[in-house]
């Protein structure tokens, strides 16, 4: 299995405030990585750097064997943002139209037929179990359903890597479990590598294959079960401050 992402010695600052310091890690093909850390730990910054939304200041990032500065994302990396929950709810678009937005990079001078595009859209909606809501206005769906539509939008272009930034914010607890199951299916059945950003370690350790703890620097990168067997004290040492795992019993 090859490497999709290689981050080496990345540091980043906003004005004088250092948010990332000498961060290095890699993401293998087929991995389901949980990126966790408290608020303000630099999670969103590292994601923005990977997505090319923020300019790299120090260090290097390689995506699909190309320096990130030269990497033109033509659907290899896709994204579900935290903000998906705070979009303009009055926007007059159906679920189908929203999913279709994920196909923009497929559309150019040689665009596939409308029929083929529709097929891809319905396939993605089917994968997230939202077929029956294809013609429903996005604002009329529940938070969990909207998030499924946003996942469909992110996978419609068949990306190799899907990055999700706190995707369960605004999704009720009952649906959160289904949501993680959907992510596991995407990972195992479709072979999409995932980076799941969360501030809540407890709920994701059972689903991910790799755990990456970030708080300005990488404090832990490895197997989630090894991390779970640590005592709170060991974890606090890793993290540099008090941290407790909240166990979620379902």
């Amino acid at each position: 299995m090859g490497q999709l992402i290689e981050v080496s010695n990345v540091s980043h600052r906003y004005d004088r405030h250092l948010v990332l310091e000498d961060v290095s890690f890699s993401i293998d093909e087929g991995a389901f990585v949980g990126l966790v850390g408290p608020n303000g730990s630099g999670k969103t910054t590292i994601i923005k750097l990977l997505l090319g939304l923020e300019k790299l200041q120090k260090g290097s990032i390689e995506a699909f064997d190309k320096p990130i500065q030269k990497f033109a994302n033509k659907g290899h990396i896709s994204f579900v943002s935290q903000k998906a929950n705070s979009f303009n709810r009055g926007f007059p678009a159906t679920a189908k139209e929203v999913v279709g937005m994920g196909l923009t990079s497929k559309i150019g001078y040689f665009k596939p037929s409308q029929k083929k595009l529709e097929y891809l859209i319905f396939e993605a909606l089917d994968l997230v179990n939202m077929m029956e809501y294809a013609n429903t206005n996005i604002g009329d769906l529940s938070g969990g359903q909207q998030q499924r539509v946003f996942i469909a939008r992110a996978i419609v272009n068949k990306p190799s890597l899907l990055i999700l930034d706190e995707p369960t914010v605004g999704v009720d607890t009952e649906n959160v479990e289904n949501f993680y199951k959907l992510l596991s299916d995407l990972n195992k059945q479709l072979g999409i590598s995932l980076i799941l950003v969360s501030h809540d370690i407890g709920s994701i350790t059972t689903h991910v294959t790799d755990l990456l703890c970030l708080n300005k620097t990488i404090h832990y990168h490895g197997n989630p079960s090894d991390f779970e067997s640590m005592t709170d004290e060991q974890r606090s040492q890793l993290y540099g401050h008090d941290m407790h795992t909240i166990t979620h019993d379902h």
């Binding site: 033109a72 678009a93 937005m101």
Partner: peptide, 15 residues
């Protein structure tokens, strides 16, 4: 359409 709905996603998609 994509830019009007969600600028961040549109930018990530290479628009």
């Amino acid at each position: 359409f994509a830019l009007s709905f969600d600028e961040e996603f549109a930018t990530v998609s290479g628009i």
